[in-house]
Write a protein that binds this DNA or RNA. Structure first.
Length: 309
DNA sequence: GACCAGGTAGCAA
DNA sequence: TTGCTACATGGT
């Protein structure tokens, strides 16, 4: 087993592992106590529990060690990110958790907007993630009209039921299923697992990817709005889910998914951005949130409103 | 029992 | 194009 540490002081703008992984953007990590996204088992931002995920068949575990406030302005006392894997996976971890993003500059370059500044200030150290595209696609197909804790539960169930079992450090982990593994499931099975009306969407999209009709990663090569349109070819994927996939797995930092919370924010704080349809409203709020990193702003606002502060 | 949650597909006009 | 409406499920 390989292990290592990454000083959080090296991460411009800090790094808050808890808020990064439990802010509703990733459903592909699991917390060791199994209580991730459980608001009743809220461990607080400074906890040091392990989180694990499986990438390319390898288990990766990370946790925060030492330090005071994870997003403290005084970064010198920020502690370290400790990791374990079967090989040297530090480069993968840096990519997945976007540790090399210059978060300080991103926050500083955000528009001078009191509401936005409040959200950024409240959750310093929250970074976007870069999750694997297929798992992200299925996760957000499942997310329709669902609370984040239940989305995480559904994704975990899919992994347990259809994903590869992987032994690491004496414990069994489950990879997120490959397209062909999910494509071999049936709508009835997935309904039994509690996916509800999303069940046929998941099966049909998995079949499309398994058959080679398309892959979410193909959207990488396109311009932002074309990429969004491209992703809506998958069943169960509309503009909003497409934006989530672009933002949380394909590096389109300008994407602003218009979900119920952001729509609330638009109604309350940016009513002039409501253009009556998704594409135009998206364009308006994207501009209001500073363009290039509008998705970062979106993620902070989403978390700020959803967890209510 | 309503109401709500990181919405979308299918259909009518 | 735009504007309904049905769709599962569990928590408050």
């Amino acid at each position: 087993m390989e292990t290592g540490t990454i000083p959080i002081a090296e991460c411009s703008g800090g790094f808050d592992l808890y808020r990064t992984l439990e802010s509703g953007q990733s459903y592909l990590w699991r917390r060791e106590d199994g209580e991730m996204y459980n608001d009743d088992a809220e461990p607080g931002p400074g906890h040091d529990r392990w989180y694990s995920t499986v990438v390319d068949g390898d288990v990766i575990r990370v946790r925060r060690r030492g330090g005071d406030q994870p997003g403290a302005a005084d970064n010198s006392s920020a502690g370290v990110l400790e990791w374990e894997a079967s090989d040297d996976r530090e480069p993968t971890i840096r990519r997945l958790l976007r540790l090399d993003d210059d978060l300080e500059s991103i926050v500083e370059s955000a528009p001078a907007d009191p509401f936005l500044e409040e959200a950024y200030e409240a959750y310093r150290g929250l970074r976007l993630v870069e999750d694997p595209p297929f798992g992200t696609l299925i996760s957000f197909i499942c997310s329709a009209q669902m609370r984040v804790s239940r989305i995480h539960g559904m994704v975990s169930t899919l992994a347990r039921t259809y994903g590869d079992e992987i032994e690491f450090d004496g414990e069994t982990y489950h990879a997120f299923p490959r397209p062909e593994q999910l494509a071999s499931s049936t709508e009835a099975e997935l309904r039994d697992l509690g996916l509800g009306y999303r069940a046929p969407y998941v099966v049909r999209t998995a079949e499309m990817v398994a058959n080679g009709d398309g892959h979410p990663a193909d959207a990488r090569d396109l311009e932002y709005e074309d990429a969004r349109d491209h992703l809506t070819q998958f069943v169960g994927v509309g503009d909003k889910v497409a934006d989530c996939v672009l933002l949380f797995s394909l590096g389109f930092d300008e994407a602003v998914p218009l979900d119920t919370w952001i729509k609330t924010a638009i109604a309350d704080y940016y009513p002039d951005c409501d253009c009556g349809n998704y594409a135009e409203t998206s364009r308006a709020i994207r501009e209001r949130f500073g363009g290039k990193y509008a998705g970062y702003a979106q993620t902070y606002v989403f978390h700020y409103l959803r967890t209510g502060e």
